[in-house]
Design a binder for these strands. Structure first.
Lengths: 152, 152
DNA sequence: CACCATATGTCAGACTTCTGACATGAGTCA
DNA sequence: TGACTCATGTCAGAAGTCTGACATATGGTG
């Protein structure tokens, strides 16, 4: 089962398993968001704004794990379609605070419910202790990867 | 900080943390693979072929978590550049078994070493027990998401 | 045999995201 | 004041991936 020193055993590689789980989560989310006409980034953006109104484009991009450029494209569409509003002019610096409109909030409600169901399904087989362990483990992985790499 | 029953608290959502960790892993892998002129899917394809020679396009796509179409585009480039070889005609069905060339194997060696370092860094803060728990947890999450959703 | 469901490989087009580049605004410091 | 650094928003083009569609090959079933 185990390989030599050079090879990575995909069957037991935690990196591979992490990617596999993330891929399954993404597929499950896309499946429930598609009928609502939303992509994952689209949903993530609305959810972030619901919890922290006034986030800027760059802050939203970081929170949704995409580039500023990608989030900018999305925000322009969301603003055009009336889901969010942005200050016409920056209050400080160049950052334009963004907020949900009532329409955006309504749209988010259905999506949030669907996504929550997916998350519950994901956790179905895990005990309370395992969920707590998952929290610690995922947090540790993230920080280890960030601290060791180049600061972006 | 906590919301009503509808909202998802991103700070403690395991779904969000999973995406965050996966995003950090992806960024770290892209950082080390870019100097080698490889994307993650590119690397994944070679690694899969090293461990299971003769995989078809569709099997590689499933293993790398992309569509057949995406893997097909990649395989055509890899074959053109001499990293892999494909049977000219299918031995059974339409599946074309693919194998690494010596050049592909050499190319993979460097990449595999770099990716292994990233994975070790990711696990740096975790005990043996926690790594075992991570294995169980990620596997459970994947299967729960798949079993509950539509069979693709 | 014919029919159907499933799986595969491929082409074409569109979408999303990314990289690279530039200009603007704020803060630090000599 | 001026120079420098950093963060932000945006534009333009490229890269990767996706959806939709079609033809082909296999196996099961009537």
């Amino acid at each position: 089962m185990s390989q030599g020193s050079d090879a990575i055993d995909l069957q037991t590689s935690l990196g591979y398993l992490l990617k596999e789980a993330s891929s399954a989560l993404r597929a499950a989310m896309e499946e429930v968001l598609r009928p609502l006409g939303m992509t994952i980034t689209h949903y993530s953006c609305l959810e972030l704004l619901a919890q922290r109104p006034g986030l800027s484009n760059s802050e939203l991009a970081r929170g949704a794990f995409v580039t500023r450029q990608s989030m900018s494209v999305l925000l322009q569409a969301l603003e055009r379609d009336g889901y969010v509003t942005r200050a016409a002019q920056p209050s400080v610096g160049k950052a334009l605070p963004t907020r949900l409109t009532p329409r955006g909030r309504r749209s988010l409600e259905k999506a949030s419910k669907a996504v929550r169901a997916v998350e519950l399904r994901m956790l179905a087989g895990l005990s309370e202790d395992e969920q707590a362990a998952a929290f610690r483990i995922l947090t540790s992985m993230t920080h280890s990867l960030r601290d060791g790499g180049a600061q972006d």
